[in-house]
Design a protein around this nucleic acid. Structure first.
Length: 579
RNA sequence: GCGCCCGUAGUGAAGCUGGUCUAUCACGUCUCCCUGUCACGGAGAAGAUCGCCGGUUCGAAUCCGGUCGGGCGCGCCA
């Protein structure tokens, strides 16, 4: 037996066993040495006595994190010697033989101390960081999640199929990672941003249901909830599906299972997963990925101020408010902080009124009539102790500002209950949107999704911004965790959606030739989606940063500080590639 | 590319309204003592040009400018 299997040892009192692991700590009493031996299963106390002089001599030499193999007899501890803090505290191993398998220098970080080293050092010495039980647990959890996903998908006749990693550069998406081809001079592969085209081709190829825990690669700047470079998706697709609801209903039980069985959390909406149209989400929560664990809806006040004397409200395209319970407790400094956040989102400022001791206190109250104040109170439902914050600007800006503030206020007042998970599908995304910089029409989300109503809608809709895509996202506690759609499997419609953006048929053929070609030969309607498994793990394991749920993460600059990648390569390698 | 924040022994923190800072504390490391500890204990020791460069000043860890590195956010992410 080569491992501790800590709990197992408690079953072997009186038996002679061998155990291997790391020296977690050594307590040398001069005439008696205690060693906590550690492996993945936990700790086991070893006792080395001078009566076994050879073992004792070796034990005196041991230092933290030495790798050892020991032999001895498991014995029960006397009542007063038990340690109830650890599962094996009732026993100990009386050791008579100690072999040092490997020595360890003093560690550059202390993985088992209360205060962890900063992230950069932890990642530089990730192999030491990984020894922490919390990280070991995370790795097991990820594997467990993969297993649950596979069992679920397999049971529903989805076939797991791997698609190429050496793929093609895809336009209209994120920045690609390019791989020069040695055999094809001057040409490049690209790492796939997603298996999108391959999975659609699988549908044309007669695969009824496909899934894959797919590696995806995007060369874009990271965030706390977005890894640099590579990440994993549960990618899936179903043929002969013309309504996205079929896909959503297929995946709902899996996500609920992950929340309850896997993470042990409570579903905020119980068995239901609400479907919220994009437009409604934007107007009600100011976001297409709202955190629904708290209410704090955006309240429409534009009409109430149609004839106001207050210029800021009078001339704004849109006036809305959010009502913050306990807002009166905010200090001037804190309100300034939220004002900064509002300005970051494009607001000119942040007007507010506070209800305190039966009075209204506000820098803007003097500009508002008593009727207007009454309307605010009535529409927001504000009571004593509340503060109402206003957004007045173009509608999109108001929604963005108040949506951001809604989330920040919730954080400030502790409304984000980590034991609960609010899931929702955001549906009916606009097919096109206006590029704010160029003021030109652009794809809203995914150019491969089907416009609702197909060709007829594309041709007959006056304002192209009104065209709805059969496209849906799932949100979990304010994070986008899934994106999917009913695909456009009709070549004519595909030409048309690109044509409306002035892309020529030749361009479409050049970029999506394989898929267009395939669609000519009997493509079934199909739909699917892709879940971001790293982000789901992050949220379900209460991590603030998605790097925490990855074994070997890169830092924010795309550098693996442990392996020193990326790195300079041998010029001979480059010349072989013709570079 | 832009904005905000951070950088002090091996690790984590304090100091940062300039002057007993000759830089403090905890953990870790090293030496010696210790037969029931489990955050072992006791005695002692080593270890920091305060990220780097420059400036202001009689004097800079502390103030200013630049630079490098990191974190968060914006842009970006079909």
């Amino acid at each position: 037996m080569n491992r501790i299997i800590a709990l197992d040892a408690t079953q072997k009192v009186g038996e002679r066993i061998s155990a291997s692991g790391w020296v977690h700590s050594r307590r040398d009493h001069g005439g008696l040495i205690f060693i906590d031996l550690r492996d993945h299963s936990g700790l086991l106390q070893l006792v080395v006595n001078p009566e076994t002089p050879e073992a004792f001599k070796v034990a005196e030499e041991l230092r933290d994190e030495y790798v050892v193999k020991v032999e001895g007899t498991v014995r029960e501890r006397a009542a007063e010697l038990r340690n109830d803090k650890i599962p094996t505290g009732g026993i100990e191993l009386a050791v008579d033989n100690v072999v040092i398998l490997n020595r360890a220098e003093t560690l550059p970080i202390q993985p088992f101390a209360e205060a962890q080293a900063n992230e950069e050092l932890r990642f530089k010495y990730r192999y030491l960081d990984l020894r922490r039980p919390a990280i070991q647990r995370m790795l097991k959890k990820r594997a467990d999640m993969y297993r649950q996903i596979r069992e679920y998908m397999d049971a529903r006749d989805f076939t797991e199929i791997t698609t190429p990693i050496l793929a093609n550069s895809s336009p209209e998406g994120a920045r690609d990672f390019l791989i020069p081809s040695r055999l094809q001079d001057g040409k490049f592969y690209a790492l796939p941003q997603a298996p999108q085209q391959f999975k659609q081709l699988l549908m044309v190829g007669g695969v009824p249901r496909y899934y894959q825990l797919a590696a995806c690669f995007r060369d874009e700047d990271p965030r706390a909830d977005r890894l640099y470079g590579e990440f994993y998706q549960l990618d899936c697709e179903m043929s002969f599906v013309e309504d996205g609801e079929e896909v959503r209903a297929m995946m709902d039980p899996l996500v609920k299972q992950l929340v309850t069985d896997f993470a042990g959390k409570e579903l905020f909406f119980g068995d239901e997963i609400p479907r919220i149209p994009y437009r409604e989400a934007m107007e009600t929560y100011g976001s297409d990925k709202p955190d629904l664990r708290f209410d704090m809806k955006l309240i429409e006040l534009t009409d109430a101020f149609a004839n106001t004397e207050f210029g800021v409200f009078k001339h704004a395209e849109c006036v809305k408010a959010i009502c913050v319970k306990d807002g009166a407790s905010l200090s001037r400094k804190q309100i300034d902080h939220f004002t900064e956040i509002a300005k970051n989102e494009g607001a000119a400022g942040l007007a507010y009124i506070t209800y305190e001791n039966g009075e209204v206190k506000s820098p803007i109250a003097k500009f508002l009539s008593s009727e207007e104040l009454a309307a605010i109170t009535e529409k927001t439902g504000a009571e004593d102790g509340y503060t109402v914050f206003f957004g007045a600007d173009k509608r999109d800006i108001v929604n963005a500002v108040l949506g951001k503030l809604r989330s920040e206020f919730a954080r400030h007042f502790g409304l984000k209950d980590s034991r609960k998970v609010a899931l929702a599908w955001i549906i009916d995304f606009p097919f096109y949107e206006l590029d704010t910089k160029t003021n030109k029409l652009d794809f809203g989300h995914n150019p491969f999704s089907m416009p609702k109503g197909g060709m007829k809608t594309l041709e007959e809709t006056e304002n192209k911004l009104d065209i709805i895509a059969d496209q849906y996202d799932m949100v979990m506690n304010g994070y986008e965790i899934c994106s999917g759609g009913v695909r456009n499997h009709n070549p004519e419609v595909l030409y048309k959606v690109f044509g409306l953006l002035d892309f020529s048929p030749e361009y479409v053929e050049e970029k999506f030739g394989a898929m267009l070609n395939a669609f000519k030969y009997g493509a079934p309607p199909h739909a699917g989606c892709a879940f971001g498994v790293d982000r789901i793990l992050m949220e379900l394991m209460d991590e603030q940063n998605v790097r925490e749920v990855v074994a070997f993460p890169k830092n924010g600059s795309g550098v693996d500080v442990m392996m020193n990648s990326p790195s300079v390569v041998d010029p001979a390698q480059l010349s072989e590639l013709g570079l």
